[in-house]
């Protein structure tokens, strides 16, 4: 087992890939065989695919606060009039799709949480054809993301209630960035750099859901988180480095998370949740 990014990098050198290290570690720590572990991950991938498809077709949340924007983004991408680039816009669309399905109490795969489930599925499904990833390579993408996610989870956390959105969409984006780097032929060191770059930019991001719902701003933070994962991965692959090492960035995430007041940790008592519109929506949905 690896507890730091440094250990993850060192141990991975004895394996063909980070994914192989993750599968090996999982088999050692559980009662499952390698085939069972890969089969379970395959089921997760299926649910990710379904949730993206369902969201793009158009859904509405239980409260009516979110929904229908993945469909709009799909039409926009198809129109070809976007500025940033097709892979990024598809990742953004997919991320919105998953989180819209999540908000309507549909079936999703938490990566690492439900509130941040759009990022990883979003980038993987946008990039798998472009990177010619086989089914097994797509599973490896998820194992790589999971390996880096485990380190973040054990050294900081993955719950907005504990450490803010920096630990939810922040960790999801960092995991996705790392997996993108290795899927595109980068080294594990470059993957670690992508993790560091992503988390640095998310540092301090608060968790302030309007009416306490995983809808606003969560859906759009997933979209922007997916775009950041793509950019961080590209920067790392270009050879950019992180001055602060990944492990130290994760430690900073943990420290900042503990310093965040309870009002900004998923209680719905601060940030966007207590804007005039946020308060009005809360009253409309739940009464006084």
């Amino acid at each position: 087992m690896f507890y730091t990014v440094k250990e993850l990098i060192e141990q991975s050198h004895a394996f063909p890939s980070v994914a192989a290290l993750m599968v090996h570690t999982e088999v050692e720590n559980s009662t499952r065989t390698e085939a069972q572990v890969r089969h379970l991950m395959s089921r997760n991938l299926e649910v990710m695919e379904r949730s993206v498809k369902e969201g793009i077709a158009g859904v509405k949340s239980v409260t009516g606060l979110t929904g229908g924007e993945a469909k709009k983004l799909d039409a926009y991408v198809t129109s070809g009039q976007f500025m940033s680039g097709k892979p990024i816009m598809e990742a953004v669309r997919n991320a919105v799709a998953v989180n819209e399905v999540n908000a309507k109490m549909g079936l999703i795969c938490a990566t690492p949480t439900a509130g941040s489930a759009g990022v990883l599925a979003g980038v993987l499904l946008a990039m798998r054809d472009r990177l010619h990833l086989s089914h097994d390579q797509q599973l490896d993408f998820l194992f790589t993301a999971g390996a880096f996610g485990l380190v973040i989870a054990n050294n900081a956390g993955i719950a907005g209630a504990e450490g803010g959105c920096q630990e939810e969409v922040g960790s999801a984006s960092a995991m996705a960035a790392a997996a993108l780097v290795t899927a595109n032929g980068g080294t594990v060191e470059q993957a670690a750099t992508a993790v560091a770059i992503t988390l640095q930019n998310m540092l301090g991001l608060v968790c302030d859901p309007v009416a306490g719902l995983v809808e606003v701003p969560c859906v759009k933070r997933n979209a922007l988180g997916a775009s950041q994962a793509m950019i961080s991965a590209d920067m790392a692959l270009a050879g950019c480095i992180s001055v602060i090492p990944a492990d130290e960035v994760i430690e900073a995430v943990n420290r900042v998370g503990m310093q965040l007041p309870a009002t900004l940790r998923e209680t719905g008592e601060g940030g966007l949740a207590t804007t005039p519109t946020g308060l009005r929506l809360k009253e409309e949905i739940f009464g006084k």
Binding site: V47, V101, A103, C109, A110, L120, F143, V214
Partner: peptide, 16 residues
């Protein structure tokens, strides 16, 4: 476990 991070498959909206 890696499935603590990639998973569970669940009905939304919040894993916690």
């Amino acid at each position: 476990s890696v499935f603590d991070i990639i998973g569970p498959v669940m009905v939304g909206p919040s894993s916690s």
